[in-house]
Write a protein that binds this DNA or RNA. Structure first.
Lengths: 101, 101
DNA sequence: TTTGCATATCGAGATATATCGATATAAGTT
DNA sequence: AACTTATATCGATATATCTCGATATGCAAA
């Protein structure tokens, strides 16, 4: 974990909307019951948008931010783009912080 | 740990200068060998200021920020104010994050 | 009480972040 | 091809953060 990785992750987490999104993605079935498709690759942007109470562009921007930090990954399926947590990165970050903070 | 606590802690940690200071305070004897007094209550502002490469007022502001977040505590001894890590708060935060992130 | 040192606070300017609406892109539908 | 839906990008504005120098405050020494 480089200082740059750490920096982008902490900055990503420093925004409450992004923390909310990351938390919601822990339980997609519970947090996004409206979604028609399965949760194999996570939750699509529209679902998150509806729940977030922010504009579509803002939500998209937050998701891009989380992805740049490595905290989530995305997969396009037709018109939709699904986002899911990158548990490996998240765990590594939490461990690193517990170790070094 | 309330959402407010979490928010102020993460925001405090989102700045690299503040992360540096917090890291330095882990090993005062090594990082601040210049300090004349003992490290009982931590390190005084002037020492941190000299190491940080930032203005005195900026360093003071960063320390106040860390303290508001609960990550450090301060004790005045005569003219000097000593800052030290609040290990309890730091550990609680790291655990909370590992649990809930 | 005046002077000097250590730290905190204030006000201003610069940079970063959050947010939105408008629009572009990508894919599916008719 | 034209139209609709889903998402991303762009440009603008508002707010927050970082940083500084100047100054205030707290304390100690002369």
């Amino acid at each position: 974990m480089t200082q740059n990785d750490l920096d982008s992750i902490i900055k990503a987490l420093s925004n409450p909307a992004r923390r909310d999104i990351l938390a919601w993605l822990k339980s997609p079935e519970i947090e996004f019951p409206e979604q028609c498709s399965n949760y194999e690759h996570g939750v699509c942007v529209g679902q998150i948008f509806e729940k977030a109470g922010l504009s579509q562009s803002t939500v998209s921007s937050h998701l891009a931010n989380l992805q740049r930090a490595g905290l989530v990954s995305s997969k396009r399926q037709g018109q939709w783009v699904y986002y899911q947590r990158n548990e490996e990165c998240i765990a590594e970050f939490a461990d690193y912080l517990k170790q070094t903070l």
